[in-house]
Simulated assay, not measured.
Amino acid sequence: MIGLLLLGVLLLAVGGCACVVWAERGGPRWARRVATVTLAVGELVRRSEKRRRRSVTRRTSGRD
């Protein structure tokens, strides 16, 4: 079951990346929308990972 979920997430990511490339080359409007959503989600993931690393660093830097 978890394997199917991971496969679905992988297919969504690959499809989103394909839409980003297609939109860069002047694809249809729906591909540009999917590309925008894909890039926005990627940015959210990057920011949350940055915040998570900072909070872990703050928690561990006080311990000696």
Rank of each mutant, 00 (worst) to 15 (best):
V56M: 10
K50W: 11
S61R: 14
L12G: 02
V14P: 01
V14T: 04
L44P: 00
W22V: 08
A23P: 02
R33Q: 14
V20N: 02
L6H: 06
A18P: 00
E43Q: 07
E24L: 03
R52A: 13
T38N: 07
V21F: 12
R51V: 02
L39H: 04
D64R: 15
R25A: 12
V37N: 03
T38W: 12
L12S: 11
T57V: 06
A23W: 03
V14G: 02
V37D: 01
V20M: 12
G42P: 04
L7C: 09
G26M: 04
L44N: 04
S55D: 08
L39C: 12
R47Q: 03
R54F: 05
M1L: 14
R25F: 08
R33K: 09
C17T: 13
R53D: 11
V56T: 11
R59P: 00
R47I: 04
R54M: 08
L6K: 15
G27D: 11
A40S: 11
G26D: 02
L11Y: 05
R63N: 08
G15V: 01
M1D: 14
A18F: 10
V9Q: 06
V34R: 12
G27S: 07
K50T: 13
L4A: 12
E24P: 00
R46P: 00
R53Q: 14
S55Q: 15
R32I: 01
G62L: 04
G26K: 02
R25D: 04
L6R: 13
A18V: 14
A18Q: 08
V9M: 12
R46W: 04
G42S: 14
L12M: 15
V41K: 02
G62V: 00
V37E: 04
V37H: 08
R52L: 09
A18C: 09
V9R: 08
L44T: 10
G26F: 05
V20P: 03
G27F: 02
A23E: 03
T60G: 01
S55H: 08
G26L: 01
L5C: 07
L7W: 10
G26T: 02
R58C: 01
S48R: 04
R32Y: 09
C19K: 15
D64I: 02
L11R: 13
L12D: 06
R47P: 00
S61D: 06
C17K: 13
R51Y: 06
L11D: 06
A23H: 03
G42V: 06
G42F: 01
G27H: 11
M1Q: 11
G8E: 05
W30A: 10
W30F: 14
V21D: 07
G62D: 02
L10S: 10
P28K: 10
C19H: 14
G26S: 07
L7A: 15
L7H: 10
